[in-house]
Amino acid sequence: HQEHKFEAAMGNMATEVDTKTPRYFEAEVVRVEQVTKSVRDVTVLAEVSRELVPLTQAYKQVGQRATVRAAGANGAGAQVPISSAPPPVEVYEESLDRLRGDIAASDSKVQLEPVSTLTEVTLRVDSARHRALYGLEPGDKVETGPFAGMGMSFRPMQFIFGYPTVLICANGEGISSAKALIECGASDRGLCFHMREAVRLYQREEQDGSLAYADRHANWANAYHVDVHPVKRAGGAHALQDAFDADDLEYDPDATAAIVFDGGDPGFKMSALKMLNDAGVNPDVIVQATKDGDAIFLENHAVTDDEKRRKGIA
């Protein structure tokens, strides 16, 4: 009987995948860059294989945080902002093929060791908040665990020709998230800024008056079509509005979307939302950082009787 065959097959399969128990993997530091006087970008080779890291714990969306701890340590690690783009789907192809059971016609289905997939992930390390990580040098080892949060959903503005103009307001650690989004480029994780008419990044100065990633701004303009406009820290609540007013941007409010990376500063967030409101940008296409974000994956669940009937297996 078809139903009995289904139940017998299900009995030989895992009915629940453990996606809640955190797993940590060794990661080697490959590069360290000084971003500001007190912030460094620490790039590690992190494990991202879908066979080893479940989707619920993977880095899949800008705005998530990495969980990092010292090599050999026990307990939960520190949550650290990420300043590199999420890996494109091509990185996972081999491990995804394994999970689906895809094999070549000449191969036999046998038990294989899980595929390890290492890719560069850049951590924004602050000297005050991440003291144990700030002194890392190339060759040092740490452990990376689950990537926390859901990140930010940019679905409202993914229609390139509907929103040819994008305004980005970034402050503090939010600048690292802005960098990650910009450098997604044309990947499935990005917004294809290079195909839009105008993209502006209004970036707030650091405490010492410098601009984070100033050495990358020329490349952002040439490769990604993103023009950076500094926001003076000394300007207070009106600094963001002053930077926008000084810009010679011509735009259609109905064809403009916006992103606010406030870096946890409610004052900057209020200033950004007021500026965008005064500019006539539709609130429905203003994306802000949220605590949980939008779920972009399907949870594992048991197959119900209704689903069996719909699939013709009951």
Rank of each mutant, 00 (worst) to 15 (best):
R309Y: 15
A289M: 03
T117L: 01
Q288K: 14
T36M: 06
H217F: 06
A258R: 02
R196N: 05
V68R: 01
V125A: 00
E7V: 04
E173R: 11
S176H: 10
G312D: 13
A178D: 07
F261T: 07
E183G: 00
V303S: 08
E28L: 05
T15G: 13
G162S: 11
L45D: 09
D262G: 07
L273H: 11
M157K: 12
I168Y: 01
S95D: 06
C192L: 09
V260G: 02
I259F: 03
R233C: 12
A212D: 08
E7I: 03
A27C: 07
G149V: 04
T165Y: 14
R50K: 11
Q57Y: 03
A14H: 13
A73C: 10
N219D: 15
T67L: 10
N12I: 10
A218L: 04
Y202V: 05
L52M: 14
Q207E: 12
V281F: 05
R65C: 09
S108E: 03
P253W: 10
I296F: 04
V62H: 04
A58T: 09
R200D: 06
D247C: 15
D102S: 13
H217E: 13
R129D: 08
T19R: 07
R309P: 08
Y163E: 09
A289T: 13
P283V: 14
D262N: 10
T290Q: 12
L276F: 10
V199M: 11
L249K: 12
Q158C: 10
P230C: 11
D245V: 12
Y213P: 05
F244T: 02
P22Q: 09
A255L: 15
A70H: 06
V166I: 07
R65T: 04
R31E: 00
D294C: 12
G149K: 06
Q61F: 15
A70K: 09
N277M: 03
A9Y: 08
Y59R: 00
A14F: 14
A76E: 13
V231L: 12
S271N: 03
L167F: 03
Y251M: 11
S108A: 15
T19D: 01
G145V: 00
A258Y: 00
T117C: 06
G77K: 00
I160F: 03
V35A: 04
L52A: 09
G72S: 11
R155E: 11
A234N: 13
S271C: 11
T36G: 02
P81Y: 04
G312N: 10
K311A: 14
L249N: 06
Q64V: 07
I182T: 00
Q61H: 15
F244L: 13
V166S: 02
G151F: 07
D242G: 10
A132H: 04
M275Q: 02
P283A: 07
Y202K: 11
T144P: 00
S210W: 12
H225P: 01
Y202W: 13
G293Q: 14
F154H: 12
A221V: 07
